[in-house]
Design a protein around this nucleic acid. Structure first.
Length: 689
DNA sequence: GCGGACTCAATTAT
DNA sequence: CATAATTGAGTCCG
C-alpha cells in the first residue's frame, strides 16, 4: 500500500516534528491534540514549545488536500491511529512525500510480498486487515529475497504479512497480532532448545532469535518513531522481553534504556527523548508511583572510572526537559514468578522536571533526571505497588469479603472482593478444585503412563512425550507452547515425580486469584499477579453430567461447560511453522479432538473457573487435557493465558456457541435464547449463547 | 541461594 | 558500510 493515506499522513506528521526551521510556520494549521501520536501535547506546552509544534514545512505537502490531514487527524482523536476522514478505500496518493530515511527504521524484507488490499485504512471498527499470502494473484510482486521460500510456498499459506502502512502505524489489533506471533515463535524456539539440551548445552537466546525472525519478516509495527502515545499499546501493558517492546514500537532500542529521535538536517543536533526503560542497571529511584529519578546512560560496566557524557540519550533527556515533551516510561522489575527474569510495565507518559549531575557509586559523574507522571492517566505501576502491599498485609484491600473463598482447598488463597455495591457474595456452592466423574470417561481402559523417572524434553523414549507428537508440551517455565488437539500429561501411573514438568494442569493454582464483583457483569475473575502468555490458570471444575438428562430436567443451569458446543475456531495462537522453516503444516492444527463429548456443571460444586465471564476478545482459552486417575484416563478442561495479562485485569474466555452464560443476571435473554454480550471489546459479536 | 563477574547477543545511530 | 554503544539474560563461581 505504498502511497496510501496512512503513509502520507505519517510522513507529513514526521516532517512536522523533525523539521523545525522557523520560517515556515503554519501555526494555524496545527491544532491542539492530546491524541496526536507524534507530537507533545501542545495544550500543555508553554509558548516556546508551541513554536516547536507548529512548524509544518510546505515542501512535504503533496497537495492542498493534504493540508487537512493534521487537523483532521488531531481533531478526530482516533485512538488507533486510523484516519477519521477521507475516502477509506480511496486511491493512493500519488504525490505522497518520499520517505525520510533517517526517521524510519530500514525497510524489512517481507518473506512473501503482500498483495494489495483494497482498503487498508479507514475502517475504524473493522478487523485487522492482514494479507494471507495465497500467491495466487498475478499482481503479487516478488522480490529476489523471496527465493528461499519459493519452493515451499504451499506450506506458507497461513503466514500473515503486514503491509507498509501497518508496519509504520499500528492499531490494537496489529499490536496484538505482533505480540502473539512473537511469543508463539519464542515459545517454539525455547521448546526446540530445551529438547536439545540433553545432548549439547547451547546458550541461545530464544527471545532475541524470535525478535530477529519477526523483524526480518516485517512482522512489527509502529516503526515510525513518535513521542507520546503509541497506537495499540495501552498503559499497563506488560512485556517479558525487551524485544517485544521493540517490535511494537513502544521502545526502539533492543538494549539501550533511552530511545530518542534526532532532528537531522538541523545544523545543531536536537535529539528528543521518546521513551525510557528503568530496569535496575543504574541506581534509579523508582519507588514512588508518580516520580522516577532516572540515571543517564554510560559509565556502567566500564573498567575505569568514567564520567557520563552529555550526548545521545543523555542529551535527548536534557533537550526534552527544555521542550517539555511527553516521554513514555517503562518500569522493569524482577518477575516474582520467575526470579531470574524481568517484567516490564508500560506506565504511561511522564515529563522531565529537572536534571542534575552527581557523583556515581563508581566515582564518575552521572546525570540524573527527575521524571514526573502526567496526571489523569489510567493506573499501571501503582497497581503493582498496591498488590505488593496487599500481599504483605499492609494496607487493607478495599471491599474484601473473604480472604479465601476456597477455604484452603487450593494451594493459594482466592480472595473474594466487592468494591462496587452491597452484594456480599455469589450464591452458595461447594468449592472443589477439580472435575468429578461419576463413571469412567471412556469404556476403554488403557495404560497410558510412561516409564521415565524424569521426563526429559527431547527424549522420545518417553511415551507421554510421544503422545504429544514428540514435543514436550510445556517449557521449563511451565508455559504451554502450542494448542493441540489433545494434551497428554503424566499421571500417577508414571514413575516420574509429582513435580514432573508434564503435570502442569494437575499442580494447582499458580497465581493469586480474586473473585470480584464487576460493575455490570456479575462476578468475575482476575489475578493479583502478572500472567505470561501460555501460563496455566486453572481447570474447569464441577460435576460431569449427562447432557440428555440435563435437557429433560429443564432446571436452569448457567454453569455448564460443554466441549461439544464450544467454539474457539477464530483463535489462532500457535506459531507459524513457515516462519521457522518447519514443514509441519498438518501437525500444527488448533482443532481439538474430543474422543467423547464432556459436559461439566459447576452449579453445585466448582472452582474459580465458574466465575470467568465471556468476552469476544478473550485473554484465556481452554484446552482438553488427558491423564489418569485410578488407572483410567480422564478428560480435563484446562485454561491457559492467550496473551500476557497485567495484574487486576479480568480473565475471560470465549463462550462460543455454548448455551452457558455466567451465573448472574447480567445478560438479558433475547427471544431466541441468545444472550446480549457486554464484553465491550472492539470486535464484539453482540450476542452469545 | 544469591550476587558479582563475565559472556554473548541484536539493533541502531554514526 | 563497518563499527561503537547499549544492556538483557544467561552461565559460572565463590
Amino acid at each position: 500500500m505504498e502511497g496510501g493515506l496512512g503513509q502520507s499522513y505519517s510522513e507529513a506528521n514526521k516532517s512536522r516534528v523533525l523539521d523545525v526551521k522557523p520560517l515556515r510556520c503554519w501555526a494555524p494549521v496545527f491544532p491542539k491534540s492530546p491524541q496526536s501520536p507524534l507530537l507533545p501535547n501542545s495544550a500543555s506546552l508553554g509558548s516556546s514549545q508551541l513554536a516547536f509544534n507548529a512548524f509544518y514545512p510546505s515542501t512535504v505537502l503533496p497537495g492542498s488536500d493534504e493540508l487537512n490531514h493534521p487537523a483532521a487527524a488531531a481533531n478526530g482523536g482516533s485512538q488507533n491511529g486510523f484516519f477519521p476522514f477521507g475516502n477509506p478505500g480511496g486511491p493512493p496518493s500519488a504525490a505522497a512525500p518520499a520517505p525520510i530515511r533517517s526517521y524510519k527504521s530500514s525497510e524489512p524484507t517481507p518473506a512473501v510480498v503482500t498483495q494489495d488490499h483494497g482498503a487498508s485504512n479507514g475502517d475504524v471498527g473493522g478487523s485487522l486487515q492482514i494479507d494471507r499470502s495465497d500467491n495466487a494473484s498475478g499482481s503479487v510482486k516478488r522480490k529476489r529475497t523471496v527465493l528461499s521460500f519459493d519452493g515451499k510456498s504451499e506450506s506458507r499459506k497461513n503466514l500473515v504479512c503486514l503491509d507498509t502502512s501497518q508496519r509504520e502505524e499500528g492499531s490494537a489489533e496489529i499490536v496484538e497480532y505482533v505480540r502473539m506471533m512473537f511469543d508463539a515463535v519464542r515459545r517454539r524456539l525455547s521448546q526446540l532448545e530445551e529438547a536439545k539440551e540433553a545432548l549439547i548445552s547451547l546458550k541461545k537466546r530464544p527471545d532475541l532469535k524470535a525478535g530477529s525472525i519477526l523483524m526480518s519478516k516485517g512482522i512489527r509495527t509502529n516503526m515510525i518513531k513518535r513521542t507520546g502515545t503509541v497506537p495499540g499499546v495501552e498503559i499497563g501493558d506488560i512485556f517479558f522481553f525487551r524485544m517485544e517492546m521493540c517490535l511494537v514500537g513502544l521502545h526502539g532500542p533492543c538494549m539501550a534504556g533511552i530511545d530518542y529521535l534526532t532532528c537531522k538536517g538541523n545544523s545543531e543536533d536536537e535529539p528528543l527523548a521518546l521513551s525510557i526503560v528503568s530496569s535496575g542497571v543504574y541506581d534509579d529511584e523508582a519507588e514512588d508511583k508518580d516520580v522516577l529519578i532516572y540515571t543517564g546512560q554510560g559509565g556502567v560496566r566500564k573498567k575505569q572510572v568514567v564520567d557520563q557524557k552529555l550526548e545521545k540519550g543523555n542529551l535527548a533527556l536534557e533537550r526534552s526537559l527544555q521542550r517539555a515533551n511527553e516521554i513514555r516510561v517503562i518500569r522493569g522489575m524482577k518477575d516474582l514468578m520467575n526470579p531470574s527474569a524481568k517484567v516490564y510495565v508500560y506506565d504511561g507518559l511522564y515529563k522531565v522536571q529537572e536534571s542534575w549531575t552527581e557523583k556515581g557509586r563508581t566515582g564518575g559523574n552521572i546525570f540524573k533526571y527527575k521524571l514526573v507522571r502526567i496526571a489523569h492517566q489510567p493506573s499501571a505501576f501503582s497497581i503493582w505497588k498496591s498488590v505488593e502491599k496487599w500481599k504483605h498485609g499492609f494496607g487493607s484491600r478495599v471491599g474484601l469479603i473473604l480472604p479465601d473463598l476456597a477455604s484452603g482447598a487450593e494451594n493459594l488463597p482466592v480472595s473474594l472482593v466487592n468494591d462496587v455495591d452491597n452484594d456480599r457474595g455469589p450464591s452458595y456452592f461447594t468449592y472443589f478444585p477439580s472435575v468429578k466423574y461419576s463413571k469412567p470417561y471412556t469404556s476403554t481402559t488403557l495404560r497410558l503412563g510412561c516409564n521415565c523417572h524424569t521426563c526429559t524434553p527431547g527424549d522420545l523414549n518417553c511415551c507421554c512425550i510421544r503422545k504429544n507428537d514428540g514435543d514436550f508440551p510445556y517449557l521449563a517455565s511451565g508455559v504451554l507452547v502450542s494448542r493441540r488437539p489433545m494434551l497428554y500429561e503424566c499421571s500417577p501411573l508414571c514413575p516420574c515425580f509429582p513435580n514432573c514438568k508434564n503435570r502442569v494442569s494437575q499442580t494447582g493454582l499458580k497465581f493469586h486469584l480474586e473473585v470480584f464483583k464487576t460493575t455490570d457483569r456479575g462476578w468475575g475473575l482476575r489475578s493479583w499477579d502478572p500472567i505470561r502468555a501460555g501460563a496455566f490458570i486453572c481447570e474447569y471444575a464441577g460435576e460431569v453430567v449427562d447432557k440428555l438428562n440435563l435437557k429433560r430436567k429443564s432446571e436452569r443451569d448457567d454453569y455448564i461447560f460443554d466441549t461439544g458446543q464450544h467454539n474457539q475456531n477464530s483463535l489462532k495462537w500457535n506459531y507459524e511453522p513457515a516462519l521457522l522453516d518447519e514443514e509441519k503444516s498438518g501437525e500444527c492444527t488448533e482443532d481439538y479432538e474430543i474422543p467423547v463429548p464432556l459436559t461439566i456443571s459447576a452449579k453445585k460444586i466448582g472452582n474459580v473457573a465458574r466465575f470467568m465471564n465471556h468476552s469476544c476478545n478473550p485473554n484465556i482459552f481452554w484446552q482438553p487435557v488427558m491423564y489418569e486417575h485410578n488407572s483410567e484416563p480422564f478428560l480435563h478442561i484446562a485454561f491457559f493465558a492467550i496473551k500476557n495479562i497485567p495484574p487486576m485485569t479480568e480473565l475471560t474466555f470465549d463462550y462460543g456457541i455454548t448455551p452457558m452464560v455466567s451465573h448472574q443476571a447480567h445478560v438479558s435473554d433475547t427471544a431466541d435464547g441468545k444472550k446480549k454480550c457486554l464484553c465491550k471489546s472492539a470486535n464484539c459479536r453482540g450476542y452469545f449463547r
